[in-house]
Amino acid sequence: MRTRARPADRLRALQDALAGNARSPALLRSEPPVGAQESADVARLLNAGCAILASSVLADSSMEHYRGSFENKAMFVPPIVSTLALIASLHGASDRSARAERRRDAIYALSAAAAAAGFGFHLYNVGKRDGGFCWENFFYAAPIGAPWALLLSGTLGVAAERVRDTRPGGIPHIFGMAAGRLLAGLTSAGLLGTVGEVWLLHFRGAFQDPFMYLPVTLPPVGAGLLASAALSSKPKKRPLTRFWMKLVTVLGLAGMGFHIYGVHRNMGGWRNWSQNVLNGPPIPAPPSFTGLGLAGLAALRLLEGPKNE
């Protein structure tokens, strides 16, 4: 017999889960078991999301660090690591096996670590400038939110390997936690972090185009829906959340379209590409939402159980 967990307990459980120190059997019990094929499919979906995140990081960090003249040798790290992460993700996305792959695992862990170091570098870069941690430096020094996408790619990639490792008929889990919940929570947090970065950059752009409000309004709703799915105690169909994740997936691609248009809107348009792709809106940035949308869909598959209707 099950009793409904009180919201506060569930929240604590999730917090513990996210902190990585939980071994809550209640959390594990609440998810449906999956077959080998299903776990591999979910992992492949996650790998696809990671691939998109990694390619966004690859293009964005290459451009931005080229703009920064690769002044510091460490600035070569994100393009290299995201290339590896992209290769690993493409490999994973086409891999139907139900076993984790050690090299993929290592690359994902490496990219998460590199991203964490990147935060440190970027924070240091903001703080060391005249004026310190002021708005101007958050606008123009190393973008504080940029390593976030690489961190997500790495973390979700490690998670994908764990899901893939699920024994047939078992419940997917990650370091002892229910994988569906954890992924939903992680993706929800990932969306919110990305929204924070977008908000800073669109505030920087004075929200001069009303469409600039979309990526700071739609994804937070998705993050809320996912979080509520993660906190919910029983598996059920969540058409709204699923729809919203698809919306976020499409939003990322649409954002890229808007940014391509935005570059054209700068002086000289595409003829002046050598300036405008650097000074205009970053074209590779919005697909981060597409990667997260796919991760959200993967999480939902675990939470909802196999497609049997």
Partner: peptide
């Protein structure tokens, strides 16, 4: 410098043009 201006404005920084 029009339409193309400059991207890199900091100390000791230059665009390739």
């Amino acid at each position: 410098a029009s339409p193309r201006g400059y991207v890199r404005l900091d100390f000791n920084k230059r665009d390739r043009w």
